[in-house]
């Protein structure tokens, strides 16, 4: 059992990362802009990795998970693309993915490469997609294209939203 697991982890690490890469996680920084509006609600935000056949791996979901009778779930469908790319199939809350909404400012997510949702990915083209939707506000979808295995010299990747999202930065991280 132990041995099997060990072999498995090794082969996956090889797939996700090119041999020269030492990083064992990705760090995704998401800026939620401060907006001068009369009525402000923190946005719902979803992050997922999508392959070319549009199969999604869930990475993060920020929503109102503490409302009475799960009332916060009624707005999940407003993350329209996330909803169709797997959101509507999820049983919520989803361990390691769901958390409370966050207000304006810089937020960061660590995406492990050697365990969790992303371990068994094959090589090829992917898109990291970040979608935000705000009550009485708008919706914005940003994507960062990336290729597996990851190659260190392509990082950091960045993009900037225009309305609901600010600067988005994806970096490769080594924890040791």
């Amino acid at each position: 059992m132990q041995l099997n697991h060990f072999i498995c982890t090794c082969s996956i690490a090889l797939l996700l990362l090119s041999p020269a890469t030492r990083a064992d996680n990705l760090k995704l920084e998401i800026e939620i802009p401060r907006l001068e509006v009369a009525e402000y609600h923190k946005p719902y935000v979803a992050v997922w990795l999508e392959d070319e056949s549009r199969k999604a791996r869930q990475i993060a979901l920020w929503y109102d998970l503490n409302m009475r009778d799960n009332e916060g779930q009624q707005w999940l469908k407003d993350l329209r693309q996330w909803w169709r790319r797997g959101g509507r199939q999820l049983q919520l809350p989803y361990d390691g993915v769901t958390s409370a909404t966050r207000g304006p400012g810089q937020h960061s997510i660590t995406i492990p490469l050697n365990h969790g949702e992303l371990v068994d990915l094959s090589s090829g083209a992917y898109r990291l997609r970040i979608e935000a939707s705000r009550e009485v506000g708008g919706r914005e979808l940003i994507e960062l294209p990336l290729n597996l295995p990851l190659s260190e010299n392509r990082f950091p990747l960045s993009a900037r939203g225009e309305s609901e999202l600010g600067r988005i930065v994806l970096t490769l991280n080594a924890t040791h």
Binding site: Q73, W75, L76, W83, R88
Partner: peptide, 8 residues
């Protein structure tokens, strides 16, 4: 036509 949540 597209809904989420408990019994909307």
């Amino acid at each position: 036509t597209v809904l989420s949540g408990d019994a909307p």
